[in-house]
Design a binder for these strands. Sequence first.
RNA 1: GGUCUUGUGGCCGAGUGGCUAGGCUCAGCUCUGCAAAAGCUGCUACAGCGGUUCGAAUCCGCUCGAGACCUCCA
Length: 497
Amino acid sequence: MSDLHIYNSLTRKKEKFEPINAPHVGLYVCGPTVYSDAHIGNVRTFTSFDMIYRYLTFCGYKVRYVRNITDAGHLTNDRGEGVNRMESQAKLESLEPMEIVQKYTVGFHHVMEMFNAHPPTIEPTATGHLIEQIEMIEVLINKGFAYEVNGNVYFDVKKYNETYNYGALSGRNIDELIAGYRDLDGQDEKQNSIDFALWKKASPEHIMQWKSPWGMGFPGWHLECSAMSTKYLGKDFDIHGGGMDLKFPHHECEIAQNNGYCGHGGAKYWMHTNMLNFNGQKMSKSFGNSILPMEFVTGNHPLLDKGYSPSVVRFLFLQTHYSSELDINIKGLQDAEKGLKKLMEALALITNFELRITNDNSENQKLSSDIQHLTSSCKEFMDDDFNTARVIANLFEIATIINSIKGGQIKKEEISNETIALMQKTLSDYLFDVFGLKPVEENTPSKMDDVMNVLIDIRKEAKVKKDFSTSDAIRNKLQEAGIQLKDEKDGSVSWSI
RNA sequence: GGUCUUGUGGCCGAGUGGCUAGGCUCAGCUCUGCAAAAGCUGCUACAGCGGUUCGAAUCCGCUCGAGACCUCCA
């Protein structure tokens, strides 16, 4: 089906991707905590996994893609003193917690749609899976991996570590972790400072609380992903993804919970996308330097010079490997905008190519085989841990060939119709289907064509009369309005926005 | 302090032990009434020092620099 290799964070090696139940693939990605607007860094993670989801589908896999919505349990501090994020935000905005959840869930979906990310096939919520979470806690307690104190339930990391290896994913050592926590205050009822909460008792004023065997409360943040991935993808599934910042403690705890619950660690392959920096600094909610996705599109932000389409931002992301840090800045956005335009125009060109009527034997064999190689290696690059940057390099080379055919540097006779079709398909497959990019704004009304044709005709007449001041004025004024005229070699005129 | 990642040409950014990444910028040329677009050519690279090797930007060590995580974050 494919020769895909994936860098597995768990083994720290690039491994051949072998689905547990091919052609079915289970993909779990940690979704957002819906207590505030998603920022552009979140978008990088989710569009990266969107690309991965799209490529798996492109390869013929039947993917069940689960991405959760965290609408309960995520504390501002996980050591036990924190407050529920949804609830604290609700106070700030004078709304019900579930109104906060609704507001930001809708906003998140809007952003995902704007960035052309496919919705997951299942999008479960934490509050919708309290029964599963409670059941998981009960099993963990029965197996001795968890204990209850005053209506709180904690995971016993030390006990767990006797059988399993806590820290396998993040490369951490349990003793060092304990030492690192020793100075911190507030270690009251936990047996060990590194133990994490599975269930938290709610004080009476808490609105978000549910009935459990240990009293009223709410689930710990790490638990929901274990419960929901197990429910929808099984005890063993293929890929678990998320941002690099979730590796510890979140994913480490997930593995521990899964192992403790059923003796299976969950995902076979762990994938982590790297962080997004803006002007060299990590973008995060806590730094206050986060730019909202909508602000990128409108350009309404002091750090931006203008708006950029979601496809430009996606394209910028794809030029860097998902596991590398990416610094976003205005220059990069401008470059990406030009590059994407070039590719999209080449695709539009070749899509409208007039094919040769007959195939004689004038085809340039060397050129054909070069093109053949360019197109086929795209898949090889994708199979090499989703190396989108190298695929894009190939697409640019294909675009140059297309432009050369149009410009006459390459004779049309040198290229067979099959080769033209191959280039067209490759560009279209990768730009649209795999990368999820959209053509540059094509929502121009059809009347626009008519108007442009009138202008182009007037300019043509002026040029015939050598009235260059008129013809240049038309060209320059249109340029100012953002419309570019191109005088083609055959005397025709085309335009683009 | 601990764990880990990283340092590529004007900028961004791939990369394999020996073969042009690519994009953007800049210069020259072709085309053009002039431009634009497009094509072609050129321009500066692999932080430093050592080691392994016939050969290293690519492996190893040290030095210096940058960053992440260890505490909420995708």
